[in-house]
């Protein structure tokens, strides 16, 4: 079935907050697996689009399918396909919680109250932490980690649910440039080697261009969507941002860390 190869299919999506239009008549299809970067100015509806794909927001109009499942009608099944990494700023550091327990959290959430983790769950947690290079921090308190380390742990939490798609909201905010690159490479390799579709929202497209299969430029409406070369054009960026924006693609940022690239 052809439709199975799409990670996301959005048709005529309009989202309103009260009277204010957040997203207007958005339609696009995203093949699986692929790496999609969503950019746009502040308040352009980037996060709203992510939340809509997660089924957290009820749209005014239109439909969203994730792996051919309606995100509202088949909410539970659709969410099981997705690992979500929220903005780190929205996470409380008041809770004294170990790295391993955070990664376990996402898996256990699916089982409902009063469940204890099985050996298999713990194994998946270990695998996820190994993938992001944080397994040595198993017992550490989350709030004692650096911003980049916290981001990796949150990515591990998303990976531990064995998703087919990762959704990340501003994964590079408040982390230094070397850490940005490390996280980007991690995501790039997940898409390449694990066949996971990666969708990320960012206000800084510079480092991401090369890694992306598709770029979406959003400003309440879909300004442009396609391959980086077709989308990153001065006139399109001007239309989205209202001012001239220069995109400088860093050469050689996206590289394969190890292993078979033809997975």
């Amino acid at each position: 079935m052809v439709s199975n190869t799409y990670a996301i299919v959005v048709e005529n999506l309009t989202v309103k907050y009260g009277e204010e239009v957040a997203l207007e008549d958005i339609s696009f299809k995203l093949e699986h697996p692929s790496f999609l970067t969503i950019i746009g100015p502040n308040g352009s509806g980037k996060t709203t689009l992510l939340k809509s794909v997660l089924g957290l927001i009820k749209p005014e109009k239109g439909s969203i399918k994730v792996f051919n499942m309606d995100v509202l009608k088949d909410a539970t099944k659709a969410r099981h396909m997705v690992g979500y990494v929220p903005q780190r700023e929205r996470i409380s550091t008041n809770v004294p919680i170990r790295v391993a327990d955070i990664v376990l959290m996402g898996r256990l959430a699916r089982y409902g109250p009063l469940t204890v983790p099985s050996k298999y769950d713990v194994e998946k947690v270990r695998e996820a932490l190994e993938l992001v290079g944080m397994v040595d921090f198993w017992d550490k308190r989350f709030s004692s980690l650096s911003g980049g380390q916290q981001q990796r742990v949150l990515i591990a939490r998303a990976l531990a649910v064995e998703p087919k798609m990762l959704l990340l909201d501003e994964p590079f905010s408040a982390v230094d440039i070397p850490t940005q690159r490390e996280i980007l490479n991690l995501l790039y390799n997940l898409r390449l080697q694990k066949n996971i579709t990666v969708v990320l929202v960012t206000h800084d497209v510079n480092p991401v261009v090369e890694c992306s299969d598709k770029i979406m430029i959003l400003n309440k409406k879909l300004i442009a969507y396609g391959k980086p070369d077709d989308v990153i054009k001065d006139d399109i960026l001007l239309k989205a941002y209202g001012v001239a924006v220069k995109i400088i693609a860093h050469e050689g940022i996206c590289y394969v860390l190890s292993g078979d690239t033809h997975a």
Partner: peptide, 10 residues
């Protein structure tokens, strides 16, 4: 810890 994340994970 993370209300938004909790919702997203069901």
């Amino acid at each position: 810890f993370d209300m938004e994340g909790a919702t997203a994970y069901g």
